[in-house]
Design a protein around this nucleic acid. Sequence first.
DNA 1: TCGAATATATAAC
DNA 2: GTTATATATTCGA
Length: 192
Amino acid sequence: MEEFKLSTELSRNNWFGCLTDGRDKLVASAFGASSKMVRAYLTDYLRKTSAVEPTLGKDHLTHEMVRLFDGHSISRPVTLNTDMISKFQRRVYRVLEQIPRGRVTTYGLISKHLGSAPRAVGGAVASNPWPLFVPCQRVVNGDLTIGNYGLCGSLDRTGTITKQNLLDREGVPIRGSQIDQRVLWNPTEKTD
DNA sequence: TCGAATATATAAC
DNA sequence: GTTATATATTCGA
């Protein structure tokens, strides 16, 4: 039976957690105010498909999360374990990975690009298993307000604050709760 | 502001 | 299997 490892780290007044498989591929990540929330969320995520409990350990990936949390880029590439996600999720996350740092796009633009619907895209973005590594914070409302952000599965006001702070540290210009239209990125743009 | 429309995922038959 | 219900949305009246 395959081994999974759960590692956590306290930094910036937040707990960061990574769930990795036997080949050190990232199965899921999570962060939030309490270690209990982060651990519970990740073990629950694992239980969705596998009946095993992860072993506890250390991993450099949590430190990469802190870098991303600070608005920096990661220092070495990460391999994602995509076994648990749907085909549609894959299509959506491929778009998210192309949004440049310091810019944002909207649920509506992504849905147009994929020939889907905004609400369906919202669903896929909401179930992003790799927050920070896959920058779902860069997807905002069509009117360029911040929009929602779930922390360990729970949606509330603090999630939106967290999302705004993440964008701010990435260099996204925000006045009040309005994002500057100049940093809006359209998925049809060439990224190559 | 409020309701319908839309695609996907999940729970419920 | 098929049908209902719930979404990190959007657009028009």
